[in-house]
Design a protein around this nucleic acid. Sequence first.
DNA 1: CGGATTTCTGGGAGCGCTCCCAGAGTGGTG
DNA 2: CACCACTCTGGGAGCGCTCCCAGAAATCCG
Lengths: 314, 314
Amino acid sequence: MAGVSRSTVSRVINGAPHVSAAARDAVHRAIARLGYSPNHAARTLAGRRANAIALVVSEPGSRVLADPFFAGVLRGVHAELAGQTQLVLMMNPSDDLVAYLSGGHVDGAIVVSLHGEDPLPQLLHDKGLPIVVGGRPLAGAVPYVDSDNFNGALEATRHLVSLGRTRIACVAGPRDMAVGRDRLSGWRRGMHGLPADLVEHADFTPQDGAKAMAALLDRAPDLDAVFVAADIMALGALKILHERGRRVPEDVAVVGFDDSVLAATAVPPLTTVRQDVERFGRTLTWRLLAELNGAEGLPPSILLPTELVHRDSA
Amino acid sequence: MAGVSRSTVSRVINGAPHVSAAARDAVHRAIARLGYSPNHAARTLAGRRANAIALVVSEPGSRVLADPFFAGVLRGVHAELAGQTQLVLMMNPSDDLVAYLSGGHVDGAIVVSLHGEDPLPQLLHDKGLPIVVGGRPLAGAVPYVDSDNFNGALEATRHLVSLGRTRIACVAGPRDMAVGRDRLSGWRRGMHGLPADLVEHADFTPQDGAKAMAALLDRAPDLDAVFVAADIMALGALKILHERGRRVPEDVAVVGFDDSVLAATAVPPLTTVRQDVERFGRTLTWRLLAELNGAEGLPPSILLPTELVHRDSA
DNA sequence: CGGATTTCTGGGAGCGCTCCCAGAGTGGTG
DNA sequence: CACCACTCTGGGAGCGCTCCCAGAAATCCG
């Protein structure tokens, strides 16, 4: 040691008050000299907090993980995390997930990519575990962070309308996710007055986007614009439009959503709605940590702004 | 409790021998009834193992995380992990990463997306921390798992040669990563006899792929095929070829690498080299856990097979 | 059927910290 | 100068487990 007791070292490391400058310096020097790093398990056991939060990906085998969206969120989460807190990754479903999470192994949890009316977040919340959901959950009253999908889709659709298009279709996301519903609602609102009948739902994959676009063209060969609720689906839609001899944007204007890396290199480059995914992750983490630190008056949910990015497809 | 002592419970949970069937059943029933879940911190502190492995992503702000490749690996890692072991995510660089990792907080580490001659894995290995690197490291003698990039690229190139193409270019990956170098070597070998001068290096982004393709066309307007060392770059390459009026595959045949979700929906659908990323992650984890469990005679490194997938672009 | 083995079980010690309490030192006030 | 703050420090207890050892019970052997 560095001439002081365990207690003093503990106080220094945890930044507690009532430590003399001399003692603090001595401890810091000793830490540097010994390459000491506090034992995570011991402090977790002794203190009442786990110094860890869980990131629960509620979709086992699947697209969300393979989505650049998730990667960006992950980056944001990590960036916001203080070095003291561990990030433990868990995937759902897992038989003992609820028991584990509410068993004091983590201080809180971030839950992402919920489907349908998954009771998981509400369950955890009821058990007293601080929780934040990434993306508005369809069921339950728990804190969440989401992009402003409704207004993003609204702005995208208004842009198409302002271009003079009148037969505007929509390739919507899955019905069982809020992100799918909210973007569809935004499109509906933007269509006000125009017939909003051309809708096809699809999963967030290029294949499904292609299938939906083909169905739309079969139903309405005269459509002159389409709002696709995700860039990754827009890629498939562009392929179909190309195969069927439609020029983009001359014959059919296309707007996507996400502004993923793919948007700029699509043929033609995609006009799309940008959401800042890294900020999404940072906000998620910030909200959770604030709650853990006992902050008062936190907003129950946070909506992050979106922004239309103009390129060539519309 | 269920009529037995702490020790017996511990033995049951850890599957130790010398426990009567009656006692085991009683404990299991009690566990189920109480919803008991053992405290991770306590067992880590008491036992000598941390019951956790680290996943170190050695690229802070970056593309690898946003790559479907990483997502697949993550899924594989998680699938292979026993429920007992936590997965702790860490990102490099971090000032105290080495101290933390070698401080007994984790039992082992998986390190992915190394650049250049990063000394990190060797450093950790020298400190006695079991480690496996995802993708052949350029420096150091540590266990690794990698796709057979060389033979994948070789097969891709031979396919182009067998098509009768003679001016075959290569959009290669970054020079400072083994994955970039190995795929380039495979292409060179496959070209045997043909002039292997048409090479442009690029980062694994569509933008960079486009830039490289444009440079290639400027240098050799007569090229009739190109091997692109990643699907994500091939997307950019296809865009340039389209803009410059080259038909694919009639004028220029294109083969990619990875068989990511993007390959099938490219225009035209991309012939590419498939690597099973989830298996990659599973293998990585399997190798690490085997070492942790004291397995003997483990192969120092493992090369996973690749497979050419025929679509329309070549 | 006694003794040697083997199977099973309980209790003690201790992992490395944090929390709490008590005591030593320092300064300010009536 | 006694008294009461207040700041700083050290030591004890204990977090929930695993490991080890010793003793009880069951099984085997000549």
